[in-house]
Design a protein around this nucleic acid. Sequence first.
RNA 1: GGAGAGUUGGCAGAGUGGCCGAAUGCGGCGGUCUUGAAAACCGUUAGGCCCCAAAAGGGCCUCGGGGGUUCGAUUCCCUCACUCUCCGCCA
Length: 425
Amino acid sequence: MIDIKLLRDNPKKISENLKKRGSKIDLKKISLTDQKRRKLLQEIENLRANQNQANQAIVKANGQEKEKKIMAMKKIAEEIKGLSPKLQKIEDEVGILILELPNILRADIKLGKSSDDNEIIKIVGKPPKFSAKGGFPAKDYLTLAKELDLIDVERAAKVSGSRFGYLKNETVLLEFALVQLAFDILRKESFTIMVPPVMICGQAMAAMGFLTTHGQDEVYRLEKDNLYLVGTSEQSIGPYHMNEILPKESLPLRYAGFSTCFRREAGSYGKDTKGILRVHQFDKIEMFSFTTPEQSDKEHEFLLSVEEKLMQELELPYRVVKLCSADTGTAAARTYDIETWLPSENRYRETHSTSNCTDYQARGLNIRYKNKATGKNELVHTLNGTAFAIARLLIVILENYQQCDGSILVPEVLQKYIGIKEIRR
RNA sequence: GGAGAGUUGGCAGAGUGGCCGAAUGCGGCGGUCUUGAAAACCGUUAGGCCCCAAAAGGGCCUCGGGGGUUCGAUUCCCUCACUCUCCGCCA
């Protein structure tokens, strides 16, 4: 969440930010509710101050006088009891409204209306030219997977419904090879690797910025146990340091988590319905950093560079895109996507995303560090980035590494992990 | 799933209705002493919110979370969460 004080001190900054993002949130309503809240809070605090003073007097008094004073206090106690639920209600209201406000965009974010306005930062590698090179048209990954018995979505539909898949045979080997490659590289870059919980409590989910009215539709909730399934391990790594004050020397603090990710994909009916590009369940390795405010932009570039390194190791053609104002997610102040070439669609598709969430998540999580210069505890910045979203990586590997004879080469860097050089039947 | 015990500051650990944001010890920070260090001694050491343009200052809240009893709750009651021990079940 953003700092509610900003609503008082610099509401213009917020309204301009909302405008850039194309958001229609009613700022006035939040502002008025907050004013009401503070007024009521003052009232109650004054009454409590009275009460506290009077209680001191009661301690010292005796006999009849004590009785008298106690009787007098009953009225104030009643008054406070009457006001408290009102305050509670209005605080809840403000709490919900403030969660809707998106993070303040970084100054370098380009104004835009949709993903069409995203900036292409760079293009690395060349898309393979199938018809020219091998004299054959590129098959899409589902065709390849069917021919080679690598992915089964038909039977998954029977067992689980739409948007699920079984990985089979070499795709399973490839998954674990990708995991090993990622962890090998990330450990060298001082990430602490982890396998985090995939079920988290509501407080953690809300603090990470995923329980907005809009976001709620996207997450699975386990009603009986009041737990949420994570849509990315970012959601369980961020809260790892909830309510802690981190030693400044430890920053930047880097984690990389492997987890299954669960997404309802509520708003995406009809979009990417085939195959495993957009599924309810997939595995992913996610990077996550805690930094000081000064470090975070540099760390963002670092996370992007790690993503690129991983892609270059696999020798996949990709481009880097900086999302425009309208396409940047609620919690993020800046987001870069990596889009990898997908031959069957003859275009780049998103495989990675890295965001600087500045203090937006840290505020809700209450994660701080001691700033020695000011002597105060200040909020850290949090950043996240995809190392490998396995399902999508499998797709781009299968398609980009396909051969004219229908087999698929295993990227060289992965061969040592699985002991085979190609997939063929 | 059943039975029991617990949850207090950075840590350990007192406190069983008001003088308790909280004894004491350890740790941390600063100082004295010392060429330097250790020891000893002295001092200091939680967080959040509100008012105030800011500073100064003032106020409120927090003893696992929430609720209740009471003029007043760390202390009594209810409830939830978590931790530990034993039994059952289980990979």
